[in-house]
Amino acid sequence: IRVHCGRGVFRGGGSQTSCDSFEFHRGEPSWDMKQLLAWIRVNLLKERPELFVQGDTVRPGILVLINDADWELMGELEYQLQDQDNVVFISTLHGG
């Protein structure tokens, strides 16, 4: 199973954490979003992971798109990742 994850710099209170785009490979059994987030937290976020995850989900205000559709339509954390899925995290930054 190959999943592409993209985009994300998450800020708050003057500091930031980021995860770069990455390709994600995994054999069976596939992961759900909850496991993907836990994996990103441990393996990709170098500092201040709380700017990206809160509890076992993303921090409120971060939008998640799975194959360009709002993950709220896809079951959010329970969504089972499929081969060739494309997951995008968009930070809703404040200010202009």
């Binding site: 800020r11 708050g12 209170g13 003057g14 409120p60 205000g61 930054l93 404040h94 200010g95």
Partner: peptide
């Protein structure tokens, strides 16, 4: 999309987090 480098704006940040 970048936050102003001079503005941690802590107070609004708390209000924002609470609201989110």
């Amino acid at each position: 999309s970048t936050e102003c480098i001079y503005s941690p704006n802590a107070y609004r940040g708390h209000a924002r987090t609470f609201l989110k």
